[in-house]
């Protein structure tokens, strides 16, 4: 059987708040396979963001183990982990999180710099991807000169720069109007369908979650439901 790209085994994340301990995740096990499109839903405080952080190797769990390409992250130091993230996982955030002083092109080149790619290669790749997300004409604009939808496209281009297997999106349409949000979701779906990227997406809107092959429902740090989405809406 195919090996999972990311696998978490019985992970818990406990925050020590002095007098009380908060269990953000409570013994979650999950395998994510290549090409899968998974959405995570749940009410506020259910632990969905924490699960995403753990799945994307941003956060080490208090208990349990996380495997990226079957390698346990507990054996890696923070720098190795950063490099694994850089290579394996592309991030899309609700608030875009672009570096404001850098142009779209430079923002997309940044992860390639961290990955140690030479300058001309960085530029070539960034230009190509920005073209693919429809920003070929706006590459030298700074984030504040771009609309919300365009900013999120830059962020997607940045997430794709190192050609990672997994795209992690945390409420990617949360700061966008309906039309731009729709375009961004379509773009993410296409990445999954056409490029075979594994997509992990946190959202609190079921309509958005249904775009995924599968939706996981969390409550109090536990997976309470696992639903296959039969009828995926696909736009032409």
């Amino acid at each position: 059987m195919e090996k999972p790209v990311i696998r978490v085994e019985n992970v818990s994340k406990i925050y020590d708040m002095g007098k009380v301990q908060v269990k953000a995740l409570d013994g979650v096990s999950l395998s994510v396979y290549k090409g899968q499109f998974l959405s995570i839903m749940g009410p506020s405080g259910s632990g969905k963001t924490t699960l995403l952080d753990v799945l994307s190797a941003l956060l080490r769990p208090t208990k349990g183990e996380v495997f990226v390409n079957e390698k346990p992250i507990s054996k890696m130091d923070d720098n190795q982990l950063a490099q694994v993230r850089g290579k394996t996982i592309g991030f899309i955030f609700q608030t875009f999180n672009l570096i404001p002083r850098m142009s779209a092109l430079e923002n997309v080149m940044l992860p390639l710099w961290f990955a140690g790619k030479p300058i001309n290669e960085r530029k070539e790749i960034a230009e190509k991807i920005l073209g693919e997300v429809g920003l070929g004409q706006r590459m030298n604009h700074k984030p504040n000169e771009l609309s919300g939808g365009q900013r999120q496209r830059v962020a997607i281009a940045r997430a794709l720069a190192t050609n990672p297997d997994v795209i992690v999106a945390d409420e990617p349409t949360g700061n966008l109007d309906t039309a731009s949000g729709e375009q961004i979701l379509e773009l993410i779906s296409q990445l999954n369908k056409k490029q075979g990227k594994t997509v992990l997406m946190v959202t609190h809107e079921s309509e958005i979650a249904e775009r995924a092959h599968e939706t996981i429902f969390l409550r109090d740090g536990k997976i309470v439901k696992n639903k296959k989405n039969e009828t995926r809406r696909t736009k032409k």
Binding site: S56, D78, F91, I99, L110, F114
Partner: peptide, 10 residues
């Protein structure tokens, strides 16, 4: 935080 997330080492 963003830079670390997208692969920047210490």
């Amino acid at each position: 935080g963003v830079m670390k997330a997208i692969g920047a080492t210490t």
